[in-house]
Design a protein around this nucleic acid. Structure first.
Lengths: 229, 229
DNA sequence: CCGGATCCGTAACGATACTG
DNA sequence: CAGTATCGTTACGGATCCGG
């Protein structure tokens, strides 16, 4: 049995790190912020962890009430891991760290093949101003290389989720990662990408525009503040 | 030489954790968010680290541009560690984690003797709404048990710092930790604490009121959001 | 005394193989 | 598919030692 090391300090920061401060733990949370996942789904996204480490982390996160293990109703009966409410409340902290990480230089130890569009979506959706999607209720599906994810927009709130949309999406965007990054950084316009057959983009113009505004790098360069809601 | 383990992922969260994800690292940053510190000051606040671990962390944080080593002008010539601008930008992330940590249950492994008033101040100042101190320019000095720290208020911004104020403060508050926690939670009013000789409180009424409003638990119970500035 | 560096036993990690 | 078991390697924690 593993009794994880704690700081033993009566300080909120140390208390948080006692739960999510160990290696890999926040990356597991990161994956679950994109929706429920099975063991193999997590393993596929965090292969360097090893099955034993993932197993350890899932157990202690469950013990600490950050995640829960659910069994899907038949047919299927797969078990999936889900964030609890407490786990979902880690989203601001994860996004703050991500914002800080964005300005870090990329060094040669980072493998470009680990780049994933849904992780970009996680950050962009979290940082998009609510006004952008106020009053809108729609779904965008992205097919980026082998990846499938969708974004649920619900009146000021945009949450990304792994996998295809569970129903017909309002907008569908199909391209590869380099093209998405060019669209993201504004190096190419959606119209031009479509014209040059780099991307397939379908859906009502207004919704498509909102989808690309969420994926706009400019929101990120703004200073991040922490404010009571 | 220690070449710290990295995740090697091209993801902003993993990039951030590559720098501040190792054990103790964010706690060192936490201490430096309260102002520049000498090696022994850090050691006194993080004794469980051991001098070697602290030395390792300071070196890698300096290499990564999060902290810098400064030599104070004579007399003194002490060397201190300071956060760089990049390090200072970790404040929102640290405060987000603290907010999450506040709602974690306290278990028996946490030593009550590690409780420190200046850490409470770090969280409270970070979470206080700017409107509270808009237009105010003043300094509060706290003498809590053996601890000395002060809060610099500057038009909407309140930053706590370890040690006595470098000049005569506008407000002086002297008490022990239990009393401060009671004041913090609203179990006792400043007026009553003063009357019962539990605290010595000096300064203009308006400034004293502001000082205690920053130290008000209610700001923390609000939901925390991350918004572009 | 301050600011470390060195040494060493233990716990966590990473890779792989194995099992219900 | 969803994990355990095993094992060599790395990081951590405590103590001691050393140069300024």
């Amino acid at each position: 049995m593993v009794v994880s090391r704690t700081y033993g300090q009566l300080c909120p920061i140390a208390r948080a790190l006692d739960v999510v401060g160990e290696r890999w733990t926040l990356l597991v949370v990161r994956e679950l912020l994109l929706g429920p996942k099975r063991f193999k789904d997590l393993m596929a996204r965090l292969p360097a962890m090893g099955t034993n480490r993932l197993s350890d982390r899932l157990k202690s996160l469950e013990r600490d009430g950050v995640i829960a293990k659910r069994i899907l109703p038949p047919p299927g009966e797969a078990h999936v891991y889900v964030l609890t409410d407490a786990g979902e409340r880690l989203r601001p902290a994860v996004l703050c760290l991500a914002t800080w990480g964005l300005e870090r230089p990329v060094d040669e130890r980072m493998d470009p093949r680990t780049a994933r569009a849904e992780l970009l979506a996680l950050v962009r959706c979290g940082l998009a101003p609510p006004e952008l999607t106020r009053g809108a209720h729609e779904t965008y599906e992205f097919q980026i290389g082998e990846e499938r994810f969708h974004v649920l927009v619900n009146d000021g709130d945009a949450t990304p989720r792994s996998g295809s949309a569970p129903f017909a999406p309002d907008v569908t965007i199909v391209c590869d990662i380099p093209t998405l990054l060019m669209l993201d950084s504004g190096q190419i316009t959606p119209a031009r990408a479509k014209r040059e057959r780099l991307a397939r983009i379908e859906g009502p113009a207004a919704a498509v525009r909102r989808a690309f505004e969420i994926f706009s790098r400019k929101h990120v360069t703004d200073t991040l503040r922490v404010v009571p809601g």
